[in-house]
Amino acid sequence: MEFLVFLSLLTIGYLFGRMAEQRHFASIRERETEYRDVLAFSARFPPPTTDRIDAVLVDGNVVVAVDYFKMTAAALRNLLGGRVTSFETLIERARREAILRMKANAQAQGATQIFNVKLETSSIGQGASGQSFSVEVYAYGTALVPAKAA
């Protein structure tokens, strides 16, 4: 009985987790083209310019849940060692999504460049024995917004 519950959780996790992941990647690729005009850099300072600009903090935040299948695969991986491929895709999705949201934020304010972009990652909602958690990625940077005419 316990085994059947485990098996069905695994199947549900795999089917829905994979469906959600494929959809998410498709949407990420689409929006990356859409926001191509907003450039993001890790460099701390923008190139010198004579234009009047305002510096604005822009950020994007995303939390992605780990499905049961991914967690089980990672648990097995923890015993054997090696690339935790099931989590690699998860973090990749979260990072790209967070940057996209930050870019959307910047674009809404009329910026086309973001400097000093940084990413923070944390896991939240960790269960007593690592049973359930979600990954959070927070992207933030300084957007250069052309100053409004005074």
């Binding site: 316990e2 485990f6 049961y68 967690m71 089980t72 990672a74 648990a75 097995l76 923890n78 015993l79 269960g127 024995s129 690592g130 049973q131």
Partner: peptide, 8 residues
């Protein structure tokens, strides 16, 4: 492994 899944 500190994971309920691995234990199971």
């Amino acid at each position: 492994s500190d994971s309920a899944m691995a234990q199971q």
